[in-house]
Design a protein around this nucleic acid. Structure first.
Lengths: 144, 144
DNA sequence: TATTGTTATACTCTATAACTATA
DNA sequence: TATAGTTATAGAGTATAACAATA
């Protein structure tokens, strides 16, 4: 039951962002659940689709997460048969993470599910405003 | 060193919001550190300033956090002498959280520190765009 | 019997340190 | 010696369950 947000918190940027962030994670996660991947795992798939095979170390750097965290993310994808760990010929300590056909498929379908979920999250905004919000967020974040 | 964000993640709403949320928490937290309160504690002070004395239960509902979490938030404020736990005359199980003069002062000064920190976070945007971003976030969140 | 504040406990998420196998 | 992946462990953050005092 909507008691409404306390006004003093509504002008706090971290509060606004936190609330919406939580909703986004929840909605995207529910959308992706049918594919048996979570938000972070699908993000990993997307990086691999867009940038090709890479080591776990590199994936972690791209995603901004520690390499120990990458292990559990990839474990799940590996168990689900969405990604394969292939020994790198160039450096046999490292794996070259490679998408399986199922992995490609899951990424593709997941992208649509995420898009739908996000439309739901932003249902209070019309399409131009949704685009504006995204654009402002990207611009606020800068280049890196 | 800015390696840039992976493009596949840049159109993921949860990723954008998460990154900026993290930055906001960090910047606001650093700003408030000089007052020996964290972001959540200052938010509590603001709710009490705006809405007057209330029980811990009510504060938790206003802030959207569990009452067990409220305990530690108020513990810190109590230790710092910013808030007093006064037994409610109407219901002696409950405390009526009341701001001390130091608490009022800290809230006031904190509000300016937060505002400065947020300007920093959004330095990539000019003033009209900052206002637009806030407005879009509030509208996306809806009424409750 | 229900509720307020509290404590103890557990769970999630993530990072640090230490291990192994390679380099 | 340094690095990739892994494991064990610890830390922050928050919630659930149980308890004492009060309603």
């Amino acid at each position: 039951m909507a008691t409404g947000f306390p006004p003093p918190l509504l002008d706090r940027l971290s509060y606004l962002l936190g609330k919406l962030h939580f909703r986004a994670l929840e909605a995207e996660g529910e959308g992706l659940a049918s594919l048996n991947v979570n938000v972070k795992q699908h993000a990993a798939l997307s990086v691999l689709v867009e940038e090709g095979p890479m080591t776990q170390q590199e994936l972690g750097q791209r995603m901004g997460i520690d390499r120990t965290t990458v292990v559990s993310v990839v474990d799940g994808l590996d168990d689900g048969g969405l990604v394969e760990r292939r020994r790198s010929p160039a450096d046999r300590r490292a794996y070259l993470l490679t998408l399986t056909p199922s992995g490609c498929d899951a990424e593709e379908r997941g992208r649509h599910l995420v898009a739908e979920a996000e439309k739901e999250i932003l249902e209070g905004l019309d399409e131009p405003d949704r685009a504006r919000l995204r654009e402002l967020l990207v611009r606020a974040l800068g280049t890196g």
